[in-house]
Amino acid sequence: MNLTLKIWRQSGPKAKGEMVTYPVTDISEDMSFLEMLDVLNEQLNARGEEPIAFDSDCREGICGMCGLMISGKAHGPEVTTTCQLHMRSFSDGDEITIEPWRADAFPVIKDLVVDRGSFDRIIQAGGFISANTGSAPEAHSVPVPKPKADRAFMAAACIGCGACVAACPNASGMLFMGAKITHLGELPQGQPERDARVVSMVTQHDLEGFGGCTNIGECSSACPKEIPLDVINQLNKDLRGALMRGE
């Protein structure tokens, strides 16, 4: 198939960016979206134009490194990551716009690459259970009811891609953060630090310049791992409780 791509080009963090049009031809429907960009990059390289910078690593939908706004949708038209999107989701003649995640907390580094260090700093603020190596009790000493273990797992499936932020009109990081609060809060091991965790993660989230949540739900629809909105309710509930208990 033949397509017209309109791609955001920006030479550096401070440079002004612009949309540039690139026609591509002979795209096979078995290609992944990123392989289509690889083909374009090979052509640009051959013509002496600098290839388009974009992030990806595992290309299996699990590392969370990839992430593009594709015709206005985070990760494109399917519920999956950009790297797992295949060209059979498009038709001959389509015009596709490709942009980086847009959020104050994710500044653009170059072309389609953004800095998501703010997510790491939210985790640093409390997204962990303090358990020094070697101090752990025998694994079977604390049974975890299966429904709790399953819910913890569901929330822990977040890959930290940032699509939720990109999809949200407020650029809020609440789905990402709610997923971590729910993961650790469901487990008995996560209880001792539960109050302190939510308060300090939320403080960091706001400091980073993420917006607040107004219950629009775009985050969850864009999430490739289908993290449900109720993790945000969980977060709010935990936060209220913690503040009430004077954390």
Partner: peptide, 17 residues
């Protein structure tokens, strides 16, 4: 033991083990 203490959500049986 270490991973469970950190909150790694391994698959469990109905008895919680």
């Amino acid at each position: 033991d270490q991973c469970v203490a950190q909150g790694v959500p391994f698959a469990r049986e109905y008895g919680g083990l």
